[in-house]
C-alpha cells in the first residue's frame, strides 16, 4: 500500500526559522546571513563594516565556527555585542542554534544582526536561519569559477562581495567572467568589489548597508 507523506525533511528547521524571522520583524532588526568558503575574509569584512557603521548603527553579531572563539574575540574588540556558536564539527548553522543564541544578545537595542556562517558554500544554502538576506563572499584567490561550481548559494543571495581585490593583479582571476557567471545564476545579485586590506570599496558597501538598515527600521520597502 502507498502512503502519501509530502513532508518537508527540513521542516523542523524551517519552522524555527519562521519563529526567528517573526521575532526579528517585531524588533525591526535587519538580519544578514554571511556565507563563503573558509578564508575568504568574512571576519575582516565584518570588522571593516562595523568600523564604518559605528556609532550610527546599533549592531550585533553571531559568529559561527566549527571550533574556537577567535572570530568572536575580534568582533568583541570592536565593542559590539557578539555570541559565538561552535558547531563542534557541524558544517552549517541552523535555525535552532540561532534561536538558542538570541537570549545572549540585547535584541531590543539592535538595528542589525550580522550572522557569520561556518565557512562552507554548500550546506548553509539549505538552512534558513530567519534572515532577511544572504550575503555571499568570494575572494579573488579562490578562482572565478566558484559561482558555477556552487550555484545554489549564488542563486539564494541578494549580495555578492568580491573580496581581496588588492590581490587581483597577482592572480588569474577574471573579474568579468566571475561576475557574468554569478549574474547568470542570479540576475538580481548586487555586486560589491572590496579589499579589506586597502579599504577599496568598503565605503560603497557599508553606505549601502547603512541605508538598508535605516529603511528597514522605518519599515520601508526592501528594494535595492
Amino acid at each position: 500500500m502507498e502512503l502519501k507523506v509530502l513532508s518537508n525533511i527540513l521542516k523542523a528547521n524551517e519552522a524555527i526559522a519562521v519563529e526567528n524571522r517573526q521575532l526579528f520583524a517585531r524588533e525591526k532588526i535587519l538580519v544578514l546571513n554571511v556565507i563563503s568558503s573558509p578564508g575568504s575574509g568574512k571576519t575582516s569584512i565584518l570588522e571593516r563594516t562595523i568600523a564604518h557603521l559605528l556609532p550610527e548603527c546599533r549592531l550585533g553579531v553571531i559568529e559561527g565556527d566549527i571550533q574556537t572563539s577567535k572570530d568572536a574575540e575580534r568582533i568583541h574588540a570592536l565593542g559590539v555585542p557578539v555570541v559565538q556558536i561552535n558547531t563542534q564539527g557541524g558544517c552549517h548553522l541552523d535555525a535552532n542554534m540561532i534561536k538558542m543564541a538570541l537570549p545572549d544578545l540585547p535584541l531590543k537595542e539592535l538595528e542589525c544582526l550580522i550572522i557569520e556562517n561556518v565557512g562552507n558554500l554548500v550546506c548553509p544554502a539549505d538552512y534558513q536561519l530567519g534572515e532577511d538576506m544572504k550575503i555571499v563572499v568570494l575572494s579573488v584567490t579562490e578562482g572565478d569559477d566558484k559561482p558555477s561550481k556552487y550555484p545554489a548559494i549564488f542563486h539564494e543571495s541578494q549580495v555578492l562581495i568580491i573580496n581581496k581585490m588588492d590581490l587581483l593583479p597577482f592572480t588569474d582571476f577574471n573579474l568579468a567572467r566571475a561576475k557574468e557567471a554569478a549574474l547568470q545564476i542570479n540576475p538580481h545579485l548586487l555586486i560589491f568589489e572590496l579589499s579589506c586590506k586597502s579599504g577599496q570599496g568598503v565605503d560603497s558597501w557599508a553606505s549601502w548597508l547603512k541605508s538598508k538598515i535605516k529603511r528597514h527600521r522605518l519599515g520601508g520597502n526592501m528594494g535595492q
Partner: peptide, 18 residues
C-alpha cells in the same frame, strides 16, 4: 529575468510503500 521558480528546491518525503 523575473522568473518564478516552480521546482528544483524540494527536499521532501513524497510517499512510503508499506
Amino acid at each position: 529575468s523575473e522568473l518564478k521558480q516552480l521546482s528544483g528546491r524540494e527536499c521532501l518525503i513524497h510517499h512510503l510503500e508499506v
